[in-house]
């Protein structure tokens, strides 16, 4: 096995161009597990932990650019105020050690249907900045995943960063696991309010082959809030609206049975989590106080 360890971003892109079969590795919390368990044996590992450009984040023109190598622990500590949904999700990832090692870019590249970071990125309309020697493109996160553990990256491309707007409204995330910590999700749900656009963002995890938004549910809720002038004059939500939102979210799922839970359970739980998190964000929207799960 070849082991490449560039120390500049340009060299990393160069290495990927010349070794299109190279497997990028950052925190190693997925790749090393797969290697250790003999699930794959990459011919080449491209270690990105020596590339300083990947570990920065910045705020430009009102939009955050988060380097692909920023670990969950820093998302929580440094960006928890601006991206509360992503921070809540990051807190549910693994153990402190995993949160120190695992990165946002690695989470995207693994493209697991159960990746904890994906639903809040979907709910916030994040974009993935992808680079190669050929140039740069940005992919909406909703178009990034193409199947179970598959994504749109070409063989010579690497994830450079994630672009996402800081929260302008309440954000929440909910996860059900078969235990209370250090657990792969049975299912996850994220919701974000975007009051300045009078829009709602959603993201489902572990409920379909890829993470996906619940577009119909989000549009239903946004229209309901706009029609009743609730963005500016929020009142308690009618039970019928909350229930309909949950139903539409559940209708978005395409889950499977596995050792962690049945498909029926996932669909049912998704509706519950949608109602639950909507209750939290709406309360926060009305009172300005964040709620904890």
């Amino acid at each position: 096995m070849d082991f490449l360890r560039p120390t500049h971003w340009r060299d990393a892109l160069d290495a990927k161009a010349h070794h299109p079969d190279a497997t990028p590795i950052a925190g190693g919390t997925d790749v090393m597990v797969e290697i250790n368990f003999g699930r794959r044996r990459p011919s080449t590992l491209l270690d990105l932990t020596g590339v300083p450009e990947l570990t920065d984040w910045s705020l430009d023109d009102g939009r955050l650019r988060i380097g692909a190598g920023v670990p969950y622990a820093r998302l929580i500590d440094e960006l928890g105020d601006r991206l509360p949904g992503l921070a809540i999700a990051s807190r549910t990832v693994g153990s402190p050690q995993i949160r120190n090692r695992g990165t946002l870019g690695g989470n995207l590249a693994s493209a697991s249907p159960a990746g904890d970071g994906h639903p809040p990125l979907l709910a916030s309309d994040a974009e993935v900045e992808v680079q190669s020697l050929r140039g740069t493109r940005t992919v909406p996160v909703g178009e990034f995943f193409t199947g179970v553990k598959r994504h749109v990256l070409a063989d010579d491309e690497l994830i450079a960063a994630v672009h996402v707007a800081p929260a302008t409204g309440a954000q929440q995330f909910s996860k059900i696991g078969t235990r209370n910590a250090m657990v792969i999700a049975v299912c996850t749900f994220a919701v974000a309010l975007h009051p300045e656009q009078q829009r709602v963002g959603t993201g489902l995890g572990s409920a379909a082959p890829t993470p996906r938004p619940a577009t119909e549910a989000a549009e239903f809720l946004a229209a309901e809030l706009t029609d009743t002038d609730q963005w500016n004059r929020p009142r308690p939500l009618p039970e019928s609206v909350v229930r309909r939102f949950g139903e539409l979210v559940a209708a978005t799922t395409a889950p499977i049975d596995d050792v962690r839970g049945t498909a029926n359970y996932r669909t049912h739980a998704m509706a519950v989590m949608a109602r639950r998190t909507l209750g939290w964000v709406w309360n926060e929207h009305r009172t300005g106080r964040q709620q904890c799960a």
């Binding site: 597990v33 368990f37 078969t178 235990r179 209370n180 910590a181 250090m182 657990v183 792969i184 050792v259």
Partner: peptide, 15 residues
């Protein structure tokens, strides 16, 4: 198939 601690669960402190 679940022959490791990722999948053969025992309680965490939070449980």
């Amino acid at each position: 198939v679940n022959h490791d601690f990722a999948e053969y669960h025992i309680p965490t402190n939070a449980d």
